[in-house]
Simulated assay, not measured.
Amino acid sequence: MQVEAFASIIDADRLRQAAQENPKLRDMMVRYEQFFLAQVQQTAACNAAHSVRARACKWLLRMQSLVGDDLVLTQEFLAQMIGVQRSGVNAIAQELQKLEMISYSRGHIRILDRPRIERLACECDAAINAHYAEIFGS
């Protein structure tokens, strides 16, 4: 998990059995697998084609959409999520804070100006969201 939340687990054999017995569940799992593979492909292309700043902004927007304006995370964790060294994330965090787009203190980031961060982010999160909507509906 990337952020604190509640989760449930199920034994793989029980899930497999439930999917065999419930066509709607099986269909949803197949569609989710299609979405997940598309997301992995988009992420690989993003990591190869876009700047560290654009990827960091994309990731911050994604996390804000999931948990709100206050993100509990370290620069090390963010660096792992976007596939760079922590020093690269540190420079970006300092830049975004200087521009008053985020506030950052040890292990906490607060999004202050989403529209400006959106302008710096790559289009990959929007592409992933569009693919999700195509597969699952809005």
Rank of each mutant, 00 (worst) to 15 (best):
M1I: 03
Q2W: 03
V3P: 09
A5F: 03
I9G: 10
A12L: 03
A12K: 01
A12Y: 00
D13R: 02
D13F: 01
R14N: 04
L15E: 01
R16Y: 01
Q17Y: 00
E21F: 00
K24V: 05
R26W: 01
D27L: 04
D27G: 05
M28R: 07
M29E: 04
M29D: 03
V30F: 05
Y32C: 05
E33M: 12
E33P: 00
Q34A: 13
Q34G: 07
F35S: 06
F35V: 00
A38W: 11
A38M: 12
Q39I: 00
Q39L: 13
V40T: 02
Q42L: 15
T43C: 09
T43S: 14
T43H: 12
A45K: 13
C46N: 14
N47G: 12
A48M: 09
A48Q: 13
H50F: 14
S51F: 07
S51G: 05
R53A: 11
R55C: 09
C57H: 08
K58N: 14
W59L: 15
L60M: 14
L60Y: 11
R62G: 12
M63L: 15
V67L: 07
G68L: 08
G68M: 08
G68W: 08
D69T: 00
D70L: 10
D70P: 00
V72Y: 05
T74V: 03
Q75T: 04
E76G: 14
E76K: 15
F77M: 08
F77S: 09
F77W: 08
A79N: 10
I82L: 10
I82S: 13
G83S: 09
G83C: 12
G83I: 01
V84A: 13
R86Y: 05
G88S: 15
V89F: 07
N90F: 11
N90S: 15
A91R: 14
I92D: 14
A93P: 04
A93D: 04
Q97T: 12
K98H: 07
K98A: 08
L99E: 15
E100A: 12
I102Y: 03
G107A: 03
G107W: 02
R110N: 04
I111N: 09
D113W: 02
D113F: 02
R114V: 00
R114P: 06
P115K: 00
R116H: 09
R116A: 13
R116V: 05
R116S: 14
I117M: 11
I117A: 08
R119F: 02
R119L: 12
L120D: 10
C122E: 08
C124T: 14
C124P: 01
C124W: 02
D125V: 09
D125R: 10
A126Y: 01
I128Q: 13
N129I: 08
A130D: 13
Y132E: 11
Y132N: 10
Y132M: 08
A133D: 12
I135R: 09
I135Q: 08
I135V: 11
I135A: 07
S138C: 02
